[in-house]
Design a protein around this nucleic acid. Structure first.
Lengths: 174, 174
DNA sequence: GTCTATACAAAGATAGAC
DNA sequence: GTCTATCTTTGTATAGAC
C-alpha cells in the first residue's frame, strides 16, 4: 500500500540527495542519531563531509527528511487495515525492523511545518480505521507505542515484552 | 509513602554530593539532559566545573544517580495503591511535574548494575498491585507510559492528550 | 559535485596548587 | 573542596579552488 504521491516527502529531492538520504538511513540504523555525524555519513558515501552541505542545508534538515520518510514508510507498512490485532502486529514488526528510525520519528518534538501537509495524519489514520473512534484510536496508538519503545530500550525484565503482554493489550482494544 | 531505606539511592552519598544532585535536578528540568553540561551545573552551584568531579566521577555517574532518584520518587508518588484509575492519575501527575526527569529515567537503556538491587522492581510493582496480574500490569504500564511520553513530546494533535483518551485507556484496564 | 583547509564552538575530563 | 589552566576530542559549518 503506497502513500499518495503528494504526500511523498522525497518527491522534491534531487537523485543525489536521495542517495545521501538512503546512506543516512543506513548509518542511522547502525549507529543511532546521536552518533551519526556529518563525518560518518560522508565516510559511508566515500566523500568528504563538507560535500554533504550541497544536498542538505544542515544536519537538522536531514533529520526532518528522515522523519518524513519514516512516517511514509510506517504508514505504508500497516496498510491495508483490517483488525486491531493485525494492525498491532504490523506496527510492531516495522518498528522492530527499523528501531533507530522509529525512535527518531516518534520521540522529541516534531517540526510539523517542515512536513508535507497531511502526512502525519495519513500516517496515524490506520488506528482510526481499526477502532472506528478517535479516542480509542489515540489510546491504542499510545499503548502500542509505549510497548514498542519500552521493548526497544530493553525495559522489560526479560528484555523483550512477553507475548502474553502483547495479547493482553490487544485483547483490551478488540 | 516512602521507599524502604535499603532502596534509597542517596544513602551512600556525602551531604555535598546530595546538594550537587539536587542542583543537577534543577538544571535538568530547566534545560534537559542534552544541554545540562558540567559547566552549566557548576554555574548553578556557583563553583567551577572541575570541582564537580570531586563528587561524581563522570557525567554518566551523575545520570545514574538521577535515574535512581527518579525511580524512588516516582514509586513513592503512586503509593499507596488503590484503583487503576487512581494509579494512572498519580503516574500522570508525577510525570507532568517532572517531565525531564521522567524522560531521563524511562528512555534509553538502563544500567541495572548501578542501581540498588530491587529498586526498579519496587518502582514498578504498583501496577501489579492494581491489576493483580503480571501481564496486565506490564500492558497497563506500557500504555500509560506511551500516553505520557507522547503528551510530553506534544505528539497529540491538540498538544495534550484529550481527557477522553485517558478515560478510554483507563476503562480498558479497569 | 567534490575537494582541502579551516573556522568556531562546545563538551568532558585531568593536573596540580591552595 | 575549590580553584586556574589546559588538554583532547568532536562536531557543525563555511570559503574558495577544481
Amino acid at each position: 500500500m503506497t502513500c499518495p504521491p503528494e504526500l511523498d516527502p522525497t518527491r522534491l529531492l534531487t537523485p543525489r540527495a536521495r542517495e545521501v538520504l538512503a546512506a543516512a538511513r543506513v548509518v542511522l540504523e547502525r549507529e543511532g542519531w546521536q552518533t551519526l555525524t556529518m563525518r560518518t555519513l560522508a565516510d559511508e558515501l566515500g566523500i568528504a563531509a563538507p560535500s554533504l552541505y550541497k544536498h542538505f542545508a544542515s544536519k537538522d534538515a536531514l533529520r526532518t527528511q528522515l522523519i518524513a520518510l519514516a512516517l511514509k514508510e510506517f504508514g505504508e507498512a500497516v496498510r491495508p487495515v483490517s483488525t486491531v490485532a493485525t494492525l498491532v502486529r504490523h506496527y510492531r514488526d516495522v518498528a522492530a525492523a527499523n528501531p533507530q528510525l522509529y525512535r527518531l520519528a516518534t520521540s522529541g518534538t516534531l517540526d510539523r511545518e517542515a512536513l508535507p501537509p497531511g502526512l502525519e495524519e495519513w500516517s496515524g489514520s490506520p488506528f482510526f480505521e481499526a477502532t472506528g473512534d478517535p479516542h480509542r484510536a489515540q489510546a491504542l496508538w499510545a499503548a502500542v507505542h509505549g510497548m514498542v519503545v519500552l521493548e526497544l530500550d530493553g525495559r522489560f525484565p526479560t528484555g523483550t515484552a512477553p507475548e502474553a503482554t502483547w495479547r493482553e493489550l490487544v485483547a483490551h482494544f478488540s
